[in-house]
């Protein structure tokens, strides 16, 4: 097991280097620092001096890969590639275009993101699994057939509709929760209710349909017939045998997104004015602040790789047939 962990972590290194190189090419070769400066300064009245000044202020005035003006190791370290890309490996994100420390911003803004994403995941999982199990118990009845209509309708509706509709009905008409905003400490709770509720509801359609399919697939297997032949009740067959096996794909599907919960949700956070990483990214994109976008892309890749490694471990934990070596 230990050896397996080590090998998987080593495999992650070349993937991260690849991600890093690719983002470097995208952000600095396709979109050169001169273009960035022009965009930041506005299209009109951009003088070459102003561009030069902006580049100097933000550290983009160095050569891309190789600095011939210095000597020794500085020929490689005093470059854009080293400053902006290699430093990402040490999670040194540098400063954003408006001069803020990106690392500090991320550390501060990931908690509001997590405060929404984690409850959405846990409550959503509980709701989806229970509803799906209930539908599996009532399979091929009118309840089940009707549920197909309802669930397909639920999953066909755009997430935007849930957000705007929820804000309108629950906050504007019924005044049950604030429309948007955020606060520190426990005062944040009243701001979380609406986004969490809407997050859960918008996931029911797809989640329940998928879990119901997983349950029905397991129900048709031979060991379920064996369990029934023992004289077990249908509920016990479902909970102990079917759920136990269907949880394997469900759990591993959840584990892979666990690290990404830190990244927050772009839509929800922007609409509810939550100061998390999702709205951070959206704001950076609309402000053309490539330093932040680059950091978030890299962070996303790291967390995704972490999620995949965790998935493999969780398989070994929940499925006795799988041993890691």
């Amino acid at each position: 097991m230990g050896v397996y962990v080590l090998r998987r972590l080593l495999y992650a290194v070349p993937i991260l280097i690849g991600v890093n190189l690719l983002t470097f090419v995208l952000f600095f070769v396709v979109n050169a620092p001169d273009d960035m400066a022009r965009m930041q300064l506005g299209e009109k009245r951009v003088t070459p001096e102003a561009v030069q000044l902006w580049k100097q202020a933000h550290g983009y005035d160095k050569p891309l890969l190789f600095n011939a003006t210095t000597t020794g190791i500085a020929q490689f370290t005093d470059t854009i590639f080293f400053d902006k890309s290699v430093r990402l490996f040490a999670f040194q994100f540098g400063a954003s275009d408006d001069g803020r420390n990106i690392g500090a911003d991320i550390a501060q803004r990931m908690w509001p993101s997590l405060a929404i994403a984690l409850p959405v995941l846990i409550v959503g999982l509980a709701v989806n699994i229970s509803v799906a199990l209930g539908l599996a118990l009532l399979r091929a009845t009118y309840v089940d057939i009707g549920s197909v209509v309802v669930l397909v309708a639920l999953l066909s509706i755009s997430g935007l509709f849930y957000i705007i509709g929820g804000q309108f009905v629950l906050s504007k008409l019924l005044h049950l929760a604030p429309i948007s905003g955020y606060d520190t400490g426990l005062n944040a709770l009243k701001f979380l209710v609406l986004p969490v509720l809407i997050g859960v509801i918008s996931g029911i359609g797809a989640g329940t349909r998928w879990y119901r399919t997983l349950f029905l697939e397991e129900i048709s297997k031979d060991y379920v017939r064996t369990a029934r032949a023992k004289g077990l009740s249908e509920t016990r067959v479902l909970v102990r045998h079917v759920l136990g096996n269907a949880l394997i794909p469900i759990l591993t599907g959840v584990v892979v997104v666990l690290p990404l919960l830190f990244m927050g949700s772009l839509l929800t956070e922007s609409f509810f004015g939550i100061p998390g990483l999702g709205s951070y990214t959206i704001d950076a994109i609309s402000n053309q602040d490539f330093a932040i976008v680059r950091s978030m892309v890299f962070l996303g890749a790291v967390l995704y790789i972490l999620g995949l490694i965790l998935t493999d471990f969780s398989y070994a934990l929940v499925d006795p047939r799988i041993r890691l070596q």
Binding site: Y223, A227, N245, D319
Partner: peptide, 10 residues
């Protein structure tokens, strides 16, 4: 088929 007739996770 004893291979599939037993629950693999119990």
């Amino acid at each position: 088929e004893p291979q599939t007739a037993l629950n693999p996770v119990l």
